[in-house]
Nucleic acid binder design. Structure first.
Length: 489
RNA sequence: GCAGCUGUAGCUCAGUUGGUUAGAGCGCUGGAUUGUGGAUCCAGAGGUCGGUGGUUCGACCCCACCCAGCUGUACCA
């Protein structure tokens, strides 16, 4: 094809999306498999739903407008109906449950993993496509269902190699928060602003939250954000409520009851306290300690659909970003109770609770500590006998190794370049000389690279034939295995 | 959305107070080596200087607008 230079498309990735290579794929696969095993062992069963749903089923039509919310990627079907890419796994679950309600066991407990898409501005570590791993229980109002999710999240994080103290799973109740706002005489119209300010505690600190509860706050770029404009006694009351979170006391759960003020005197405050207490106490009795599962009054989550308990898991160790700076790493999992979601379809209230692990985020944090890699690769170079190369590769594969025969058309030197670029461990060479002698040459590419650092002159480079050995063709598998072992691949 | 910063080769960047054929390193391709990657040397390809308009004898450089990217912030199921 011939293209006019000006009409050629620019090869570029849409913003906020990314390509992923073998190392990350391997790491994610391992992570997903680990979580999956934990969730299945708890008796949750898998479910898959499509990436596209009708926009109205996702609940993302703009009010009054015949057009989807901008935050979702949408397209119009042939028949004029709007479809959207799912922005989480919970809305499709609600649709699925509503559609199959009769046939499902109640409580219905399922896990689901998949990509979700959000049409938002991407930032460092925030993409427009990412992977979530969800577990939800539909049809149980019991705190046992919430406790189970908290405990199972701990198990999953530990199965992924996190140690005690490297993570916390936090719980709060929106009912309790609402009761406190009421006790502080905060107008309902300011509820959203106040909650959002509290939610930013971990990122902006107490002073940031105080500014946002008051007049407002100016950020690093000089932009100004208006605050809730509360009276100072109201501000102090809210700050006192979230104090256990600020001071990071280890026994936050016990501190709850002292700081909830008159909140407990209202029904809603009582209820909020109870749902936290009951769930956390179940976890305690099951052996989950206060540094694993705890109450944190500053956990808020999204405003739209959570009705009571909210959950959030965080890492407690420092995480470096791409630039090598230590950053505050936000939550790696979040969720809560959403008792109204199924009712959107059926009109019936169905209690539901769930938690979602942000796999992409968790992966980027954990991968800095242990890099998963594919197993070492053996590449059989091809001189003049493709079938022979394939035969050797097959022998190696049958011995459980990862092996490929070179299928390009380039000359020998270039084949080695290829093997080098692929990061192969060993190149297998069988030319005319070897074949006549029933031998093969094995080249240890990693060791060869190390040895080459000492080479100074062209003559020396030409003369060297290091890090390789010629062995009997019959002993191919044994010799390759031995070389891999020696190189500690 | 708001604010700040930045757009020069595939990548990272240099480019003097506005001056004629826009450079470097890395990468890429070829060669030194028709059976040796990784070292070294030689040669080569690769650019509408983000776009449009303006100022000027003359613009990569100055001005305006637009676009894109980055960072912060807002929103975030």
């Amino acid at each position: 094809m011939r293209t006019d230079k000006t009409s050629r498309p620019k090869a570029r990735l849409p913003r906020g999306l990314r390509d992923r290579g073998p190392a990350e794929i391997a790491a994610e696969r391992r992570m997903l498999e680990t979580i999956r095993q934990v969730y299945e062992s708890w008796g949750f069963e898998p479910l898959e739903t499509p990436a596209l749903e009708y926009t109205d089923a996702l609940g993302k039509f703009l009010p009054d407008l015949d057009r989807p919310n901008e935050g979702v990627f949408s397209l119009k079907d042939d028949d004029g109906q709007w479809l959207s890419l799912r922005y989480d796994l919970t809305a499709p679950l609600a649709r699925y449950v509503a559609e199959n309600f009769q046939n499902l066991p109640k409580p219905f407990r399922r896990y689901q993993v998949g990509q979700v898409w959000r049409n938002e501005k991407p930032g460092p570590g925030r993409y427009r496509e990412f992977t979530q791993f969800d577990a939800d229980t539909i049809g149980s109002a019991s705190p046992a269902a919430d406790a189970e999710l908290l405990m199972m999240t701990c198990d999953a994080l530990e199965a992924l190699g996190l140690k005690r103290g490297e993570y916390v799973v936090k719980m709060n109740s929106r009912r309790l928060v609402d009761a406190v706002l009421e006790a502080a005489n905060i107008e309902p119209s300011k509820r959203g602003v106040v909650l959002r300010a509290v939610d930013k505690l971990d990122r902006l600190g107490v002073d940031g939250v105080r500014s946002l509860l008051g007049k407002g706050r100016k950020d690093e770029s000089g932009d100004f954000t208006r605050g809730a404009d509360l009276a100072s006694d109201q501000i102090e009351l809210v700050l006192a409520f979230i104090q256990p979170s600020i001071s990071a006391v280890s026994s936050r759960f016990d501190a709850t009851w002292d700081v909830a003020f008159g909140a407990s005197s209202t029904d809603i405050g009582e209820q909020g306290q109870a749902e936290i207490r009951d769930a956390v106490q179940i976890a305690r009795k099951c052996g989950y300690s206060g540094d694993q599962i705890l109450y944190d009054p500053a956990v808020i989550r999204g405003l739209e659909y959570y009705t009571g308990p909210v959950f959030e898991a965080q890492l407690t160790f420092p995480v470096a970003n791409e630039a090598g700076e230590t950053i505050i790493f936000g939550s790696v999992a979040g969720g809560g109770r959403y008792d109204d979601l199924v009712a959107r379809f059926t009109g019936q209230q169905v209690p539901a609770t769930g938690i979602s692990i942000g796999v992409s985020r968790l992966l980027s944090a954990v991968r800095q500590r242990s890099d998963a890699a594919l197993s070492p690769l053996v590449i059989v170079l091809t001189m003049d006998d493709s079938a022979g190369s394939f035969a050797m590769a097959r022998e190696l594969r049958e011995a459980g190794l990862r092996a490929e025969a070179y299928v390009g058309t380039r000359k020998f030197g270039d084949q080695l370049k290829y093997a080098d670029k692929r990061g192969a461990a060993i190149a297998v060479i069988e030319g005319a000389d070897e074949r006549a002698a029933k031998k093969v040459t094995l080249k240890d590419l990693k060791r060869g690279a190390e040895l080459s650092k000492a080479i100074e002159s062209r003559e020396q480079w030409l003369g060297e034939r290091q890090a390789q050995a010629t062995v009997d063709r019959e002993r191919l598998v044994q010799e390759v295995s031995a070389m891999l072992k020696r190189g500690r691949w």
